[in-house]
Simulated assay, not measured.
Amino acid sequence: MLIRDAFPSDEPFWRQLWAGYLAFYQADLPDEVTAKTWERLIRKQDGLFCRVAETGGEVCGFTLSVLHAGTWTVAPICYLEDLFVAPEHRGKGIGEALIRDLVGLGKANGWSRLYWHTQATNDTARSVYDRFVKADDFVRYRLFL
């Protein structure tokens, strides 16, 4: 398995995985949002970046993250916004490897922390995430504008 930055040529593979990710969360996004997201990921614009997992020459998973400043630290903070592994590749340690990749990048680049969230009912993902750290007791509020 190889974990690396996404290349522009990965777009069709990423779009297929992205569609699976959106379907999992029962989300529907306009094409223009998906196109802009990919553009920002590839250009590493606005702190966004994409790492992909590749096995046998096939892109089978990704992390989409945002590197940003914070008010409680001088070092950058990484928010792992999205993580997805193709269903046929699950159970092979790819999700865990993708998180370990970000941990390694964070240590090498002086990030202060890495954080993410998932649905409380996403037991499969939580069983992987709990290997790194237990969930905290914060509650999220979202106000759409």
Rank of each mutant, 00 (worst) to 15 (best):
Q26P: 13
M1A: 14
I94P: 15
R4G: 10
G104N: 08
G70V: 13
D28C: 01
D10L: 09
I99R: 12
L114C: 11
S127N: 09
S127R: 07
A97R: 07
D101Y: 14
G70R: 01
W116C: 12
L48K: 00
Q16F: 15
E32T: 12
D82A: 14
K92I: 06
R131M: 02
T118P: 07
I99H: 00
R126H: 13
A135L: 13
D130Y: 01
P8H: 06
Q45T: 00
D5T: 00
F7Y: 11
I77C: 15
D130A: 10
L41N: 08
G61Y: 04
K107V: 03
G93S: 07
F132R: 00
G110W: 00
D10P: 03
P87W: 07
L98W: 13
T55H: 10
F62R: 05
L114P: 07
F84G: 01
W72E: 09
D82C: 12
T55E: 15
D136I: 08
K92L: 15
E58G: 00
G91F: 12
L22S: 05
T71W: 11
L145E: 02
E39T: 04
K44T: 11
A27E: 13
C78V: 08
V52N: 09
S9N: 05
I94D: 15
V103D: 01
A97T: 10
C78G: 06
A135V: 12
R140T: 11
G20P: 01
E11R: 09
C50H: 05
G95A: 04
A35N: 10
L114Y: 08
L29G: 01
I99L: 05
D123C: 10
E32A: 09
K92A: 01
Y25E: 05
R40V: 14
G110F: 08
G106T: 06
G104T: 02
G95S: 00
L143D: 02
E58W: 04
D31V: 14
V103K: 10
W14M: 03
L98K: 08
D137S: 10
C78R: 03
K36L: 15
L114E: 04
G57S: 08
V128F: 12
F7Q: 14
D31Y: 09
G106C: 13
A75W: 07
L98I: 11
F49I: 03
R131T: 13
A108L: 09
W18P: 08
G47D: 01
L22N: 03
R43P: 00
A19R: 10
C50G: 09
Y25N: 03
V59F: 13
G56I: 10
R4Q: 01
W38K: 08
R90P: 10
N109K: 15
R40G: 09
R126F: 06
D28P: 09
K92D: 02
A27M: 03
R51C: 06
V139L: 06
L67D: 08
W111V: 00
A97H: 10
V85G: 09
P8V: 06
E81T: 05
A125G: 02
L29E: 09
E32D: 03
R113F: 04
A86Y: 02
W111P: 11
F138M: 11
W38Q: 05
T63N: 05
S65V: 14
Y79L: 15
T37V: 09
V103L: 07
F62S: 07
Y79N: 13
L17R: 08
A120D: 02
C50R: 00
L105E: 02
A27K: 05
G20F: 11
W111T: 01
P8E: 07
Y115Q: 15
W18M: 12
C60V: 14
